[in-house]
Nucleic acid binder design. Structure first.
Lengths: 239, 239
DNA sequence: CGCTACATTGAGTTACCTCAAAAATTGTGG
DNA sequence: CCACAATTTTTGAGGTAACTCAATGTAGCG
């Protein structure tokens, strides 16, 4: 036994890219995979880097950051368990990839993984689909950045985290009444960098949501949604 | 002779997706292609539609629009000559595709094109690369929307149009001194929808750029860049 | 328990928005 | 080709959401 984990037991087995492969092939994948633990704040890949490995997130949240020389930063995406990081047959592009929380990664060296993709065209097809999804997500966020008020932006962010957290724990639709508790993967400053707002504005809007009885917080990073449907309304409509 | 145009004479022959195919294969492509002319304002594809055709832009500019039921719109991307529109093996996603200017399109019916892609894996590879590029472009715009002042946003937009217009006319880098004239593909209102600003703000910032001697305008849609390096500076730095 | 890092709160400022009116460009019919 | 209508843009005045800067408060950690 070369390694002490198996794809069959993987927490994101049916969520990750690898699920596209027939079960018979999971051996090949398993053979070229290795695990990494990463601490919050660590940079996984640098901007425009020529990657020598790709990763699938097992647990934790990753942020994709665009940085200008003068220090201005914009978070251009978050990646959650099951998501694939990297670009086979290409360069990473102008984003820095950083651990927003402590991470568990499943990694593949470039060459073996690209070889596997050549043999299994389905992998390329699935990667294409996921890239379409990333593109849709990026464009959705363009709408958020360009058209929403600070209040709606914050509500939208909280809703997104609630949704993704929920989908990791249960299948089926997000109930519109149950209280839902989770850890925020971002600090106030980072939320600002994601939403195009000042940290103070984030803080004030979170306070607002608390005053309205839509959410409550325990400490700085624990949040509980009390009224999901009103949260949703806050994210959609201006009033 | 089935049709009176040939891929060899195509204006975007070496810019479009098709250029990935070996010359010997251009016959196959040619056989399944047909041309369409479209008037400014016409909607080419509707949001989430299951496309029965794909398009390559021969000339003109296309806008990708996200619309909310309450009328708020955000332009989430522009597509220029050579760009590919549509998603083989997938749905379009939540964007409406509209002609920003009069258009010349080269179209492919879904099935034949998907068949060709199956036979020519290089096509799928190239499509993946282009989707990566689209993703990078979207993320770049997230930075613009989230982090730039109205002045920098407008400068950034003008610069982008100047750049793409130039690259259609000449190869090699954009000179940082030559005056450069072009037609704006968007109205003031549309620029606002692209940049997340009110139309009036766009107007005022364009005026500013004129006052500074960076650009001049002839009518509403014709613009000439007088000082590209200062335009670039306005797009990058805050002062 | 105190230190540090982060978050909250407050006050004052500003960039952008909104609404309304005037001007310029483009399109149309004679 | 001109006059006029329709459309789009420009300009102005006033309001407001979000920013900045500074002070205070709080969770988390050794």
């Amino acid at each position: 036994m070369g390694s002490h984990f198996a794809c069959d037991e993987c927490a994101v087995r049916d969520r990750a890219l690898c699920s596209a492969l027939p079960r018979a092939e999971s051996g090949h994948l398993h053979r070229i995979a290795y695990r990494r633990q990463i601490r919050r704040g660590k940079i996984i890949y640098y901007s425009d880097q020529d990657l020598e490995s790709f990763s699938v997130i097992i647990s934790g949240v990753v942020k994709l950051v665009r940085t200008k020389s003068d220090g201005r930063q914009q978070i251009v995406g978050l990646q959650f368990p099951g998501d694939f990081i990297g670009r086979p047959f290409g360069e990473l592009g102008p984003v820095m990839v950083e651990a927003a929380t402590d991470l568990d990664l499943c990694c593949f060296s470039r060459k073996p993984f690209e070889n596997l993709m050549q043999q299994q065209p389905i992998l390329e097809r699935v990667l294409l689909q996921r890239t379409f999804d990333d593109l849709d997500a990026a464009r959705h966020w363009m709408f958020v950045l360009g058209r929403l008020s600070s209040r709606a932006k914050v509500a939208c962010f909280v809703h997104q985290i609630a949704e993704r957290t929920h989908s990791l724990r249960a299948t089926g639709p997000l109930e519109y009444s149950c209280p839902l508790e989770f850890e925020l993967p971002l600090s106030r400053t980072e939320m600002g960098e994601y939403l195009g707002l000042a940290m103070e504005t984030i803080s004030r809007q979170i306070k607002e949501l608390k005053n309205e009885g839509i959410i409550e917080t325990k400490g700085w990073r624990t949040m509980r949604v009390l009224d999901l449907s009103r949260l949703h309304a806050r994210a959609e409509f201006e009033d």
